[in-house]
Amino acid sequence: MKPWFFVALFILAGAVITFAPLPVTAAAPARRTFRVEANQFAYAPAVLEVNPGDTVTIELVSTDVVHGMFLDGYGLSVTADPGQTTRMTFTANRSGSFRFRCNVTCGALHPFMVGKLQVGKNRWLWRAIGLTVLATLAILILPPNFPKAETG
């Protein structure tokens, strides 16, 4: 078979891995509240897992200096002083993995103070791993000199 046939096949497979709709786990939307403690330079818990559609409340509790939380993807932010818990409530209507970051300079490692909100399963990671494996297969199956062999 011609290599281009495999190329088409791999591109098709790649598209399927990247975009195929996966069965949605039928979790009824729930209310979830997380008490997230912020201190130099981490959140605890640092990884929050929710289901798509959940109403999520994050209570931000600073335990040393003023910290904040900026949620990627949702563009929401709050700041909290020690002794003054603040809350951020939103509907987790975007699936995926989102970093949240401190948005109040809180010391040397402030730019690296991050946590993660996981809405639904981390499907993108699995798709990415799928693509990686596919890429490896493609390399092993296609002739080593492809595509130069075609052009001469």
Partner: peptide
């Protein structure tokens, strides 16, 4: 892992 990950202990250790 250290800079982009959520593990504060590792950040502090590195610092």
């Amino acid at each position: 892992g250290v800079f982009l990950g959520p593990w504060g202990t590792m950040k502090l250790a590195a610092y």
